[in-house]
Every structure is written in structure tokens, then in C-alpha cells.
Computed example of a mutant assay.
Amino acid sequence: MSLEPFQQSAALSLGVELELQLVNTHDYDLAPYADDMLRLMKKQALPGSVVPEMTSSMIEISTGVCHSVAEVLGQLSLIRDALVRCADKLNIAVVGGGTHPFQQWHERRIYDKPRFRELSELYGYLSKQFTIFGQHVHVGCPDADTALLTLHRMSRYIPHFIALSASSPYVQGQDTAFDSARLNSVFAFPLSGRAPFVLSWSEFGQYFEKMTRTGVVKSMKDFYWDIRPKPEYGTIEIRVFDTPLTVERAAALAGYVQALASWFMQDQPFLPAEDDYLVYTYNRFQACRFGLDAIYVDPATGKHMALREHILHTLHQIERHAEGLGAASMLQTLRDDVRRDHNDARWLRERQGQERLLAEVVRQAARRLRGQPDA
């Protein structure tokens, strides 16, 4: 099987996907209402799409192709508002966050769709444990080789994305001591991790053909890499973000990706190298475990520094690009949060420290997604 051609897309265009939790309003556990939500959402005239996910207590929303973070936020807000209206009719709630804090994986139901059934047969219990919730950001690339170059440059900033979006400290009622425990579940899949280091589409095609010949891979969907090319869209897709608790933060994170990609494409600040990946897994672990308190090892110099300092330095480097894209104010919110050492994982822990009841934390998180002030 040969690799499909890389389609043309507008450079720096954006698409955002958010996987969201459906919970009942009795004890705020996950509830299998995906079919009902999809039925109600079909009646809404909205941008993007709303589709099922692996288990029946999940739903995925997507924007259409956007060209600014303001457009991303506008579309996510419209879809969110429609979701909330539909959820209210069903007496359920929609929640962000990378994991549900206390759901039990064995109680989940696989959504009745051929691909999900196939994955369930292949991966067994891992499929139900994949009831985790992420944000995916697509950024448009002018051609295939630029896409691969941007992908490998972006890999140095994977710890930034993890720490800024981290919202999964709790799993099955326990504080995991990770800011992002969600990514530990992703790592269990055999084709997760990083993309191979190739910088031309012809080389990537050769790799893809080798993998399909083994029978392990049938399409690009079989790769669960942290960043993967999406040739049918003309994008690269960054997949390490936990779903944030608000659509505003989701849009800000997309703005960060867009400004980084602009810096890479216009200024060519560095050339990626295979040796960048020597510290990749360590940096990824640090960000998952400690969030903004992580240590970051610079792949080029080997220097150790606080991850928050590397994020702040990077935000300064891309400031001009953020301003040109109309993303400066959203990136300022990220900068402010880094300076006060705050992410969604911190918010969830603070709420649990006050309430001592994870169901109440989920209820308050549902209010946050609706755009309502903290109760």
C-alpha cells in the first residue's frame, strides 16, 4: 500500500478537535449518552463536526478549517453552547479534562462502530482504558517536506504542550502524582511515541510502505504518534494535549502551535536532528509527571533548566509571530498562568483540596466548560 499524496492547505491554517466527557448529574460519573447527544446535535447548524469516540461516554467535536485563534474560539464556543443545550435536555453535563477523576474503566461500553469494535478486539482492555480525553491541533503546511520539518521542530516543544494543557491528575479516584496521567495510557499502544526521523516525503513514503508490508499498519490512523502527518488534510496533527477545562484555553493552545509554526516556517530558527530525540522521552515524562515544575533538557545543548523558564523564553521568541497572527492576547494568558504556576491540573487539585469530593470537582469542572464562574 502506498502513501496517499500530501494535499495542499493554507500555511498556518488551524483545526482543533476536543474529546469531551459526558457525565450524569446525579453523581457526576461518566454516562453512556453519546448516541443521544449525536442525535440531538444533528439538528444543529454548526461549523465543524461532532462524532462518537471509542467508548459511549465520550464525544469529539471539531472545528472547520480556521485561519486565526479568534476563529477557533468562535467555532468552539458555538459548538460548546449547542452541546450544553443538548446536554441540558438529557439532564447530563459535558466536561473537559484529560481523564474522568473517578470512573472505573471496566464499566465502559465500546461505541458500536466497526473501527472501534476492531480496535477493541485487537487491544482488549486497553480499549476501555482509552476512555481518556485529548485535544488535537492541526496546523496547515504548504508542502509535505515543510510538514515533516515542522513536525520534527515541533517535537522539541512537546513538553510545553503537555504542561500547559495538563488536566488529568486523577485516575479511578486516586491522585496519580502526575499532572498528565492521560499520556501513560496512550504510551501503552504499540505504535505510540515519536515519528521516525525523515525529512522528505519520499523517505517517509518508503517507511510507510515498509510498515504496511509487515501487516502491522494499514493506514496513517494506525500511528498513535505524539505528532503525525495528516496528508489528506495537508497538516501535521499534535496529539499530546489533555482536553482543557475551557474552550478559551483550547484556543490559546492552538494559538501557541500556530505561532510556533510561523516562527519555524518564516525564521528557520534551527535544524532538527535525530539526536534531538535522545532526551525526548525524558522531557516528555518530566512534563507529564511535574507539569510546569518539570526539568527541561535542551536537545541542542544538553543544558538543564526549569520547563517554565523555557516556555517563557519561547513565548518571548515568538512574540512577533503571535502579534502578526492576532494571537498575542491569548498567548499572554498562557504566559500569565506559567508565571503563577497554574494549569488545569493545579485547579483540579485545589478544588479537591477544598471539597474532598471528586464528584463535586467534576460538577464545578462542568460549570467551567459552560463558561460559568467557579462555584
Rank of each mutant, 00 (worst) to 15 (best):
I79M: 11
D293Y: 04
G324Y: 02
L260T: 00
A181R: 07
F264P: 04
Y157L: 06
A163D: 01
S192R: 05
S202Y: 06
A259V: 01
K210M: 10
R351C: 14
R228N: 06
Y280E: 04
F264N: 04
Q286K: 08
G291P: 08
H321F: 08
F178E: 03
S13C: 01
Y256V: 01
H304Q: 11
S168C: 04
Q372D: 12
D179S: 11
K42A: 10
Q317I: 03
L315H: 03
I238K: 01
V240P: 01
R339P: 00
Q174R: 05
N91W: 10
F187M: 11
I318K: 07
R351G: 12
M58L: 03
T212N: 09
V69K: 00
D298G: 13
R109I: 14
T131I: 10
A365L: 14
Y280W: 11
V171M: 08
H316C: 13
D267V: 12
A254Y: 14
V198P: 00
D145T: 05
P373R: 07
W263T: 00
E4V: 06
S262L: 06
F197P: 00
W105G: 09
A252H: 00
S192E: 07
L40S: 02
L14A: 04
R367N: 13
K113G: 04
T246K: 15
R194S: 10
L278H: 02
D143R: 07
L183Q: 05
V186W: 02
P5N: 10
G371H: 13
S168D: 04
R80H: 13
L83E: 10
V23D: 06
A188F: 02
L14P: 07
R340G: 05
A365W: 13
S202I: 00
L46V: 11
A345Q: 12
H310Q: 03
E309F: 12
R346T: 15
V95S: 14
V171D: 00
G205K: 01
A365G: 15
T214G: 14
Y123I: 07
E360G: 09
G193Q: 09
V198S: 04
T214I: 10
A188D: 12
N343D: 02
G324S: 06
Q206P: 05
Q8F: 14
F270C: 06
R346M: 15
G193K: 10
Q354P: 04
A327Y: 02
Y123D: 08
V198D: 05
R363A: 15
P159I: 10
P169S: 12
E323H: 05
E350L: 07
E232W: 14
S200E: 13
D293K: 09
T25W: 04
A147F: 08
H321D: 02
H342V: 08
E71D: 06
R320W: 04
Y157F: 09
Q332C: 05
S155K: 08
P142N: 12
H304E: 12
L151D: 00
G124C: 10
I227A: 04
T246D: 15
E237W: 13
A252M: 00
A93M: 14
K113N: 13
V16G: 11
P101F: 14
R346C: 13
I132H: 13
H313D: 03
A328D: 01
Q364A: 15
V216K: 03
M220F: 03
L199E: 12
Y123F: 15
M330R: 02
T63W: 11
E309W: 09
F197R: 12
T301F: 06
